[in-house]
Amino acid sequence: MNNLNTLQLFRGIGRYGVLIALLLLILFGWLRYENFLGSFNVLTVLRYNSMFALVALGMCFVIITGGIDLSVGSTAALGSVVAAMLSPYGLVPGLLGGLLAGLVVGAINAFVITRLNILPFIATLATMLAASGCALLLAGNQSVSVSYDTAFIELGQGDVLGFPAPAWIALIAYLAGSVVLNFTSFGRTVLSIGGNEDATRLMGLPANRVKASVYMASGALAGLAGVILAAQFGAGQPIEGVGWELFAIASVVVGGTLLTGGVGSVGTTLVGVLLLGLIFNILNFENGLGWISLSAYWQSVIRGALLLVVVAVQAKLASRTEDAHP
């Protein structure tokens, strides 16, 4: 009985711990900083972090299959450049161009991983370098200004019903992702691949096709994040996206998805994105108060430390879970 209670406790920590941490962080910010929950700060956080949320959503599905996608940051940069170059033709061409650029990178990843049987780490590392090079070549090693004569910038700077347009896009994507993962055969196959890919094939499930679709979706979502990047900041930025893959991995893992695959949640991934986003938002408020003075580089330090801690906790919980089931 004690073992069963221990198992349930650890499962509860893994599922709700990140949500509790987010709520405590919001409470801390509300009590400490003026206007922390003001509409300007809240909407700014949502608008900015929508890009990372989209990248993290694709990464969530990839990690659940037991894989990894290191190319998402470079893919977003490439998508931003392509979208900016097509923005003079209007919102739709810019949007579709960035999406297509990401989809192409995702398709290459899918082919190399599922057909050539290259490890995801190696395959996506190669496409990360290739996508970064393509972005620099297309942009001529400089930022590409978007057109302000079309409605393209509304994708990043516009509001719909008083809510940032990028946040609407991310919210719709997460709702769709949650439905797919929890209520479709595709989602069940994704979870099965992460649990045991060989057994998934023996059951007659289309493991390769589903895994390929996951990497293509990850690329497309990264391309969409690049479109929002260009529209939000007014330029396609070929050197942007550095470290985005680590932010996405950290958000997914903090959200309780196991790096070994087979277990994961779209909803808690979104909570992980918001948690990391608020940590950096609080650092900005602290800088403003003058109590501390931390540069933006500390974000990477904190992100890496948090990822290390969460992975260590996951390993400990997994060990305790095994002990609870002798």
Rank of each mutant, 00 (worst) to 15 (best):
L19V: 15
L23W: 02
I26G: 04
G38N: 08
S39R: 14
V42I: 15
V42R: 06
L43I: 07
F52R: 08
F52I: 11
L57P: 07
L57E: 11
G58W: 08
T65M: 09
G67Y: 11
D69C: 09
S71K: 05
S74Q: 10
A76T: 06
A77E: 01
A84L: 05
M85A: 12
L86E: 04
S87Y: 01
G90Y: 01
L91S: 05
L95T: 02
L99F: 01
A101P: 07
V104M: 12
F111T: 09
I113L: 12
T114P: 05
P120W: 08
T127Y: 02
N141D: 14
S143K: 14
S147D: 14
D149M: 04
A151M: 08
A165F: 13
N182D: 13
S192E: 03
L202Y: 14
L202M: 13
L205W: 03
L205E: 01
A207W: 00
S218F: 07
L221F: 14
G223Q: 04
F233C: 02
A235K: 07
G236E: 07
I239D: 14
L246T: 13
A248G: 10
T257E: 11
V263A: 03
S265N: 10
S265G: 07
L276G: 02
L289N: 12
L289G: 10
S300T: 14
V301F: 10
G304D: 06
A312E: 09
S319V: 06
